[in-house]
Amino acid sequence: MMRVDEAKNSDMESLVDLLILLFSQEAEFTPKRDSQRAGLQLILDDPQVGTLFVLKEEDKIIGMVSLLWTISTALGGRVAFLEDMVVDTAWRGRGGGHMLVEHAIAYAKKLTCKRITLLTDTDNLAAHHFYQQFGFQTSVMQPMRLILTDQ
Rank of each mutant, 00 (worst) to 15 (best):
H129Y: 08
I62V: 15
S24W: 02
Q137R: 04
T30N: 09
Y107T: 08
Q137T: 09
L111F: 12
A104N: 04
M2T: 15
V87D: 10
I43P: 07
T117A: 13
T89P: 05
K56C: 10
M1H: 12
K60F: 04
D17M: 05
K32M: 06
S66E: 01
M85W: 02
G96P: 15
V65A: 12
G93K: 11
D88G: 07
C113Q: 09
T73C: 07
V101H: 01
D150L: 15
I62T: 14
S139K: 11
H98E: 12
S14D: 13
Y131V: 01
F53W: 04
V101R: 02
S72H: 05
R92Q: 13
V101W: 09
L100C: 07
A7F: 05
G39D: 13
L118G: 10
L111V: 11
L100K: 09
L42I: 07
T30Q: 06
K114P: 06
R78T: 01
T70R: 10
Q36N: 09
V54H: 01
T70C: 07
S10Y: 09
S66H: 00
D88H: 14
D150A: 10
S139P: 01
T138H: 15
P31Y: 06
W91R: 14
V101T: 13
M64V: 11
H129D: 11
A80L: 07
D5Q: 14
D88M: 03
I43M: 03
A80H: 08
S139R: 10
Q137P: 08
A27G: 12
V49Y: 03
M1I: 14
G96F: 10
A38E: 15
M2F: 15
D150Y: 11
G50M: 02
D123Y: 10
T70G: 12
M1Q: 15
V87L: 08
F130R: 06
L40R: 09
Q142R: 14
K60I: 07
E102G: 15
D88E: 10
H103E: 03
Q41G: 14
Q41K: 14
L21R: 12
M2C: 05
M2V: 15
Y131D: 00
D88F: 04
D5G: 05
A7M: 07
C113Y: 03
V4D: 02
V86K: 03
T117R: 13
G96R: 01
Q133P: 00
F130I: 11
A104M: 05
T149I: 14
L67F: 01
Q151E: 15
G77H: 06
G76P: 01
W69N: 08
M12L: 13
G93V: 10
A106C: 05
L68P: 00
L42F: 00
D123S: 03
E102L: 08
S24Q: 10
L119W: 13
I20H: 04
Q36Y: 07
A27T: 15
V86G: 00
R94I: 08
L148G: 10
G50T: 04
Y107D: 03
